[in-house]
Design a protein around this nucleic acid. Structure first.
Length: 639
RNA sequence: GGCGGUGUAGCUCAGCGGCAGAGCAGGGGUCUCAUAAGCCCCGUGUCGGAGGUUCAAUUCCUCCCACCGCCA
């Protein structure tokens, strides 16, 4: 029941600062680790930094620093970022650590002794940026197709890993383990790649051109190729070969990567493990790219979003929620601040935050008399069932790394609870002493639902989930096994929790909001006992009132109240939608001269753009359109 | 050039032989516990285009177009 679960992020290359892509991988790994811990698994979450290779050496030279100093600085930047994002990694490995170098050398020596590594010769066009050779066909005008920089012809001796001999084995292994690489599109991509002959892998670089790496144990003239070095972090961090941690966790290893490093993980790495006599990892989970403003996220292109700036602005939980909810795991997604704010307002503020606020207010407000808790009714058990359904769906989604589906399932439940509040109307129950037991039960169900959310949301929104648990008085560490509704039989003491996720209001939204707010205000002003505040004549003159002749009128389909009018303002015709269908038949209006607001901002009602407003008075259920008591031409000014 | 993917409502996407769906945005209504939130109602869109198979195609096949990925 306490299953080991080993999850790794890639180790990040320290030639650049952390960005959205790094943050997504790490956040998603953290959420998965938290979920499995919540489920009671023994979890080991590993992240770290990749610090060797040409690019680090070059970046260090540019920065006027020794490579180790640059690596120290940038590795700290990653570590600090994860700390601020609240990442719960259990270890943080750096490839410049002795514990790692020792393992790399041991593996190399073992492969060398087993005849898996041989000295060969290679010549080709080399790109220092890519740290790879290019074939003639790939070269564009003598330049690197990636960097557009001139290539260097290099001919050198190097050590090669006999990867080609594992091609057949790897294909069979992939056939026998359909879940090894997921989602399936990436498995297919690798199978496609394996239809072509696999080359041996150069695993060394001569020290004559690169000092910054782990020396080959059997030939001091060479350092280890950075990928061969880096991939081994996944076992070196567990203390291969003898550490108990390695024996416990390696059989349950799951890797999490972005699609740009699919090939090393899906091809080199299994072959390396096989050759070294180690088990292949359990699963490779591959996600897509974040596009920002149409461009791609990448380590070497500058178009990136600074992750920390966004989390500072909107909070860690909101950021976590957005990236996990917005991206379909495996596919690319777009990052825009509008989408971010949209999710924050719709899902976090309106649905979740408001539910917590209304429920805790009800619970905190009605404390006396809830000692009597009636039996659960159908409405209550329906909520219990919704919780069961949501957890089952979330479990299934999480087993598949489908974070977006897990969150959608939880939000289904949040919707069900919001509907439950509306249906049971606890505020109405509170007015009727005879219904005390029912009120007690409703409050109980609400507290129960909040408790459930405080647990299930924990992996995704750790801060908010903690606050919800605190509000309902839960102090014990959350466990998924306790996320079961229907066991609560008295109303707990609950503290009011409002403003969990405040809405973000931008200028456009504020304007829309003001327009909506104006409606009830106007209605209030209509009633004689609520006179409007005095305004200056200039204020009134801003309203352009005109005489208009109604040329045509028709009912708006599917609308009870709306009429679509075509009016003449003299030299201009306009469409005006008026909410008077309950008071006037279309035919009664045609030919009438009425008064319209001519400079009203156009509004779309039932898909029709209304370019103005007909003036009408109303009292109780009566409505009368303003007409002229003697004739004036259409378009005449009214004041 | 080869292989593969995608193209569905204003936006993001689900569906993948049997009357076109969800969320968001927008519109209408309603409640008042709540963060002007909630809840209810409202979508005829050439399902990229053209052919074909079928009683029936958004769904299967062929070709074409656009974009994307992997490989060369």
């Amino acid at each position: 029941m306490s299953a080991p679960f080993y999850l790794t992020t890639p180790i990040y290359y320290v030639n650049a600062a952390p960005h959205l892509g790094h943050a997504y991988t790490t956040i998603v790994a953290d959420a998965m680790a938290r979920y499995r811990r919540l489920a009671g698994d023994r979890v080991w979450l590993l992240t770290g930094t990749d610090e060797h290779g040409d690019k680090i050496a070059q970046a260090a030279t540019r920065a006027g620093l020794p490579p180790q100093a640059l690596a120290d600085r940038n590795s700290s930047a990653f570590r600090e970022t994860w700390r601020r994002l609240g990442i719960t990694n259990d270890d943080y490995i750096r490839t410049t650590e002795p514990r790692h170098a020792r393992v790399v050398q041991a593996v190399l020596q073992g492969l060398r002794d087993a005849g898996e590594i041989y000295l060969g010769k290679y010549g080709g066009h080399y790109c220092f940026g890519c740290e790879r050779f290019y074939t003639e066909k790939e070269i564009v005008d003598g330049r690197c197709p990636d960097h557009q920089t001139p290539l260097t012809w290099i001919e050198e001796e190097n050590y090669f890993f006999r990867m080609s001999k594992y091609q057949g084995w790897l294909i069979e292994y992939l056939e026998a383990h359909p879940d090894l690489i997921r989602p399936e599109r990436y498995r297919n991509e690798i199978l496609g790649f394996l239809r072509e002959p696999l080359q041996d892998l150069s695993i060394s670089r001569p020290r004559s051109r690169l000092e910054w790496g782990i020396p080959l144990p059997f030939d001091e003239r060479f350092v280890t190729y950075v990928w061969f070095d880096a991939l081994l972090n996944y076992v070196s961090a567990l203390g291969w070969p003898d550490d108990e941690r390695f024996r416990t966790f390696w059989p349950h290893a799951q890797h999490l990567i972005a699609k740009d490093i699919l090939k090393p993980h899906a091809i080199y790495w299994p072959c390396m493990l096989k050759a070294a006599g180690l088990d292949v990892f359990r699963r490779l989970n591959v996600h897509g790219y974040w596009n920002v403003g149409g461009g791609k996220m990448s380590k070497s292109v500058g178009n990136v979003v600074e992750a920390l700036a966004l989390t500072d602005k909107y909070g860690n939980d909101a950021f976590r929620y957005f990236v996990m909810r917005e991206m379909t795991f495996g596919l690319d997604a777009d990052f825009t601040e509008e989408a971010f704010v949209g999710r924050l307002n719709a899902d976090l503020a309106n649905d979740l935050g408001n539910l917590v606020s209304r429920a805790t207010t009800l619970l905190a407000g009605a404390r006396d008399g809830e000692a009597t808790v009636g039996p659960p009714e159908e409405e209550d058990t329906a909520v219990h069932r919704a919780a069961v359904t949501a957890r089952a769906a979330a479990d299934e989604a999480m087993a598949d790394f489908a974070f977006q589906r897990a969150l959608a399932a939880i939000w289904e439940f949040i919707g069900a609870v919001n509907r439950y509040v509306d249906a049971t109307q606890p505020w109405a129950l509170a007015r009727d002493p005879a219904r005390r037991p029912r009120l007690g039960r409703v409050l109980c169900t609400l507290a129960d639902a909040l408790g459930w959310l405080g647990i299930v949301l924990d992996p995704f929104l750790p801060e908010a989930a903690g606050r919800i648990r605190a509000a309902v008085g839960v102090t014990a560490p959350p466990r998924l096994a306790d996320a079961v509704m229907g066991r609560l039989d008295r109303v707990p003491a609950v503290a009011r929790l409002s403003g969990l996720f405040p809405r973000i209001e931008d200028a456009a939204r504020t304007a829309g909001k003001a327009a909506r707010a104006a409606r009830p205000a106007r209605a209030a002003a209509d009633t004689p006992d609520a006179p409007a505040a005095p305004i200056a004549i200039e204020d009134f003159q801003r309203v352009d009132l005109r005489v208009a002749e109604v040329l045509a009128a028709e009912a708006v389909p599917k609308s009870r109240k709306l009429l679509r009018l075509t009016v003449s303002l003299g030299d201009e015709q306009r469409t005006v939608v008026a909410g008077i269908a309950e008071h006037y038949a279309p035919a009664d209006l045609v030919g009438k001269k009425v008064v319209v607001v001519a400079n009203l901002q156009p509004a779309t009602l039932m898909g029709i753009t209304s370019q103005g407003m007909i003036l009408a008075g109303s009292a109780d259920t009566k409505t009368a359109v303003l007409a002229l008591d003697r004739d004036l031409p259409a378009g005449a000014k009214v004041r």
